[in-house]
């Protein structure tokens, strides 16, 4: 196969958010918004594999996800949860990453089915990606082949609890450790891989730009965008963007 980029192993420690820096009003607002957020979740309607067959029962009359405040949503921009239902073929993984980057933070990823954990049934297959958390920050896995609707609902309830406690912050890791995720994506898709979303710029916008955001892999991406003249096109837009920039915190 194509040369290049070695796959990187995950160092699992997540970068903690310092809560102490916030004053008591900010903390109160955070608690309140987390409470609300956990009760109104929109699941992106995108089925990547077999596990999707258990979502219609979970959504409709029998198990009824809506009583937990969870509803399907058809556009990524308005969705909160990206459900990866089962194996992701490499062709799908590209679309999943594009979709994920379009979603607005805070956003959560749930890997349903054993295939997202470690390849599952298709561990030998040349066409499917094996460990989902190497390419996207995953909040929670629901194992099983396939997990029953009850398991899906339990998983979603646990996610709600996590959100309420303010612990479901792995989406921030995508910005903080972009170099790691990008490296693994490049390993699979080749070093010309790029997406329409400028993650580094968004990381600055969200104040999540850190030491691990950039590295060899982002340098490769930047080199590519410079070579293909994508940064120059970007400049006027950035100026416009900075005028309307709103601080997140």
């Amino acid at each position: 196969m194509k040369d290049v980029i070695p796959i990187q192993t995950n160092n699992t420690e997540t970068i903690a958010v310092s809560k102490n820096s916030k004053n008591i009003y900010q903390q109160a607002i955070d608690t309140f918004s987390n409470f609300c957020r956990a009760r109104s979740l929109f699941v992106l309607h995108y089925c990547t594999g077999c596990g999707a067959i258990e979502l219609p029962p979970a959504m409709t009359s029998r198990f009824d996800m809506e009583r937990l405040g969870i509803q399907p949503m058809v556009t990524p921009r308005q969705a909160d949860i990206l459900l990866i239902t089962g194996y992701v073929s490499i062709k799908t993984l590209k679309r999943v990453i594009l979709t994920y980057e379009q979603m607005q933070g805070p956003k959560y990823v749930i890997g349903i089915c054993s295939c997202t954990v470690n390849g599952g049934m298709y561990w030998q297959s040349y066409a499917t990606a094996k460990v989902l958390s190497e390419y996207l920050p995953v909040d929670m896995y629901i194992a099983g082949c396939m997990p029953r609707p009850e398991a899906v609902l339990t998983g979603l309830q646990q996610l709600m609890k996590k959100i309420e406690k303010g612990e479901a912050n792995s989406w921030e890791n995508y910005f903080k450790r972009y170099d790691y995720y990008l490296g693994n994506q490049q390993h699979l898709f080749g070093d010309t891989w790029h997406t329409p979303t400028d993650i580094l710029e968004e990381a600055r916008h969200y104040h999540l730009y850190g030491a691990e955001s950039t590295g060899n892999n982002t340098a490769r991406l930047i080199k590519y965008t410079v070579e293909h003249d994508l940064t120059k096109l970007d400049a006027p837009l950035r100026e416009k963007d900075s005028m309307t920039k709103r601080g997140k915190k």
């Binding site: 796959i7 192993t9 094996k130 958390s133």
Partner: peptide, 15 residues
């Protein structure tokens, strides 16, 4: 050889 390709290309997660 799909097995060789997979071993070259992917990592496995410890459980």
């Amino acid at each position: 050889d799909t097995l060789k390709y997979v071993n070259d290309m992917f990592n496995w997660q410890e459980y």
